[in-house]
Every structure is written in C-alpha cells, then in structure tokens.
Design a protein around this nucleic acid. Structure first.
Lengths: 235, 235
DNA sequence: GACTATATAGTGAGCGCTCGCTCTTATTTT
DNA sequence: AAAATAAGAGCGAGCGCTCACTATATAGTC
C-alpha cells in the first residue's frame, strides 16, 4: 500500500496546475490574456468559491461575498466567467476530468485483480483527500447542475463503480474473490470511498489519517469479497 | 428478515401522522387553530417543499414557487411558519425525531447481537425508504442549518452509528462477530445505509427493491464482520 | 331557522433589500 | 500611446416577508 505522499508525487494537483487546465479548457470564456495573471486569479476565485459554497451552498453564496473574500472586483470576476453557472461548471468539469484521468492512468493500474482493487480504493481515497473541497462541491451541488452536467456527474460516478466491478469480475475468474453480483458489490463499495470526503470532519475528529482509512476500507472490502479463510496474505 | 409492508404496518409514517406531530411541536408558531385544517395544509406545504427543495435546493426554492405549487397564498404560508428557516427546521426536527424513535423502540429491538445488527440495517433502510424525501432533504440541506440544528443532524448520524457499534461489540463478546474496532466498522457500515436514499435513483434503475437492498447489505456486512467459515446460518 | 356578531383563515400587492450581471471609467502594464 | 486589466456604481428582476383586507365558519340571539 502506498502513502498519500507517494500519490502526491505522482500527480500534480496543486491549485496552480488545476487552474492551468481550467484556463486551457475555457479559453473561449476567459478574457484575460496573460496566463500568469489568469492562473493566479482563477486560483483565488476558485479557492474562495469552494470555501464559501461548501460552507453554505453555491446558490447562497453571492458574487458580492465572492468579491469581498477573493479581493477581486465584480468586473474582474466577469472577465473569468460569463455567468455564475459557468463558474460552477468550471469546477465540476475539472473534478470529473481529473478523476477520470487519475483512475484510468493505464501505466499505474495493476493487472492482478486483487491488487487492482486495492489500487482503486487507495487511489480514490487519496485523490479525494488531495482535492477534498472540489469533490465535496461536486457532490453537494450535483443536483443543481443543468441536465447535461448532471449526466456528467452521474457518468463519473458510474465510471468508478464500473472500474471496481471490473476488478471484482476479474478476481472472481481467478478465484481470488467470491461474490454473486459484481455490479451490486461495486455499488456497495463506492459509498465507502465517498464517505471519506463527505464525512471527513467526523473521521478527522477520530484521528484517522488517509492511510488509516485506506487500510480499513481495504480490509473491510476484502473480507466481504474474499475467499473464506485465505491461506496466506497474497493468495 | 421482515418486509417493507410489515415495517409500514408497525409505524404510521403517513404525511398526516407526521404533520400531526409537527403541529404539536410547533404550536407556538402555527397560528391556525383548527387541527384538521392545519394538518391538511401543513401536508401540502411540506410535500411541496420536499419536492422543490430536493430538486433544486432549499435556498433556490422561492416562496413564490411554493405558493404556486402548494395552492396556498403567501400570507397563508406565513400562518404556518414565521420564517423560511422555521420551515426548514420543522422538517429537520421531524426527521431526527422519527429516526430516534423508530431505531430505539425498545420493544422491537432484538437481544441477540447478530439479529440486532440485521434488525438495525433493515429498519434503517425501510425507514429511509418510507420517508425518502425527508431524509434526502435532511442530508442535503444539513450544511445550511444554523449551528444548533447542524449539531442535531450530527447527533442523529452518530446515534445510528452508535447503535450499530453496540451490536457489533455485543456480537464480538458472544463470538458471533470478529473485528478489530467496532466504532470504525460501524462507520463503514453507515454509508451503506445512506446510499439507499442518496442514490435511490441508481438503485431503482437497476430494479432493486428495498428488500433486495436489505438482503445485499446484510450479506455484505455479515461477511465483513462474521466469523470465518461459519458452520451454519444462525450460529 | 334566519340573522347577526365574532373569530378564524386566506389573499396578494407591495415593501425594502439583495441578487446576478453590465458598462463606463480608472489604473496598470507594455 | 495603446492595450490589457480592474474597479464599482447602477440596472432590472426577484427575493423573503408584511399587512390591510376579504371570505368563510362558528356561536349566540330571538
């Protein structure tokens, strides 16, 4: 099992890197020309938005709140997005984009089903740990998305589930896992991953580190899907 | 394992019954005198609120939306609550109240730990099935609650977890369950219960009935906490 | 049982205010 | 000097909420 640090070394998920990608994607909307300026201000805007929206909801966050807390003026904000909704979509798009990319980075995904399952659980938990406010935002505001974006969020959810189901099926064939229904089992595993970011406060209050949580989720899951009385650790 | 029907026969969770209790609790605020009238209109108000709020968020739901869809006028609404926030609190209070009551109904709770765990899982799933929009509302709007109410929601969450942890500990002593940390394990079981109402659409689309889901969650959980290679079903 | 008096329930235009957003003006950078 | 960026007052719309009012149900009187 890898550590959070190792995960972070593999993926640059700094605010700067993330905003760089947002800038690329939304060149059409963002009217600021100089990348350095744009990335810096986007960072301030998105950081503040995540903070305010996760505290009281995106809709309840007014753009005047956002100007005060970000230090940018009303007019300045509107050179970075053309509507409040676009701001929402920038964040959502980045979350689903990064999730897809990280969880399907072919070079990283182990071939062995049991290892792959462990890797998926670990990677998902670390990813949501590092981008915590982003994932909370996507989860909480999902219902308010316009139709197409809500579909995007659903698709992203089903992607993870599908990857887990794939590992379970493969493991079933090798005899490493014993289970009836891979899709259903994957659907039961997914909420364990989401709980890490949705109830993060509770887990933190109990002194749980991301590494602890990864270990616990892997153990719980492997007992639920593993062979009865495994002879040795690796199988 | 009981059925949803049996659960419903034991508990009257009709809109009428729920609104009757809300009326009792909020006599101080509700200015309508005749209980029959009050209960009927509260029912319309809350039904509409749950529908609108779960679709686009409580804050985004305007009271004008509510007047149109409920058929009551602006002024009429304000004889049932004194602010939009009070309306929110009425719903939240009822959710936490009913949850506490149903899950701790002493006469129903089995003594045997394994049975008790099964009963808790089943009862929680059926409760959230019957009061689905109420629980979605409480979950989604929790962050927007005023401090005291947010604490109420957290307490309610920890109550369920505590009851599960209690059953796990007891089962550990009798040798029915094998686990390291009852609190942590309960924390991993809780999200399985919540998933039933948070992702209800997905489960429904897959043709899952509440009874199916109860069965799956019980099986998954029991494998994760049970003794290795149980000799017979009942132990 | 018809008629009034009174209490209760319901109405909806309008209040003060804040919202998302625009646009002219000012400042900074090149 | 010109271009790029930031500023923030102002716009119409829509918000939560109030209040002077009407409609309806009930009680009391003869």
């Amino acid at each position: 099992m890898g550590t959070l640090r190792e995960f972070q070394a593999r993926h640059d998920l700094s605010m700067e890197a993330l905003c760089g990608r947002i800038l690329d994607r939304h060149q059409a909307t963002i009217r600021v020309k100089k990348p350095a300026v744009a990335v810096a201000n986007l960072g301030r805007i998105i950081e503040t938005t995540l903070d305010l929206a996760n505290r009281k909801g995106f809709h309840s966050m007014s753009l005047r709140d956002l100007t005060e807390r970000s230090g940018l003026s009303m007019g300045a904000l509107y050179t970075y997005f053309d509507s409040k909704e676009t701001l929402l979509l920038m964040i959502l798009g980045q979350v689903t984009g990064v999730a897809e990319e990280v969880l399907q980075q072919a070079a990283d995904v182990p071939a062995d089903p049991a290892e792959r399952l462990r890797w998926l659980l670990e990677t998902h938990i670390y990813l949501t740990e590092v981008m915590h406010p982003w994932f909370v935002f996507a989860f909480m505001e999902a219902k308010a998305f316009p139709k197409t974006s809500r579909d995007m969020a659903v698709a992203s959810e089903l992607l993870t589930e599908g990857l887990i189901a794939g590992a379970l099926l493969a493991g079933q064939e090798t005899g490493q896992f014993v289970l009836e229904d891979a899709t259903m089992t994957a659907a039961l595993i997914k909420p364990l991953l989401q709980d890490w970011y949705i109830k993060r406060g509770k887990h933190r209050r109990r002194g749980l580190t991301p590494e602890d949580y990864v270990r616990q989720v892997i153990k719980f899951t492997e007992r639920a899907v593993g062979r009865c009385c495994p002879l040795t650790g690796a199988g």
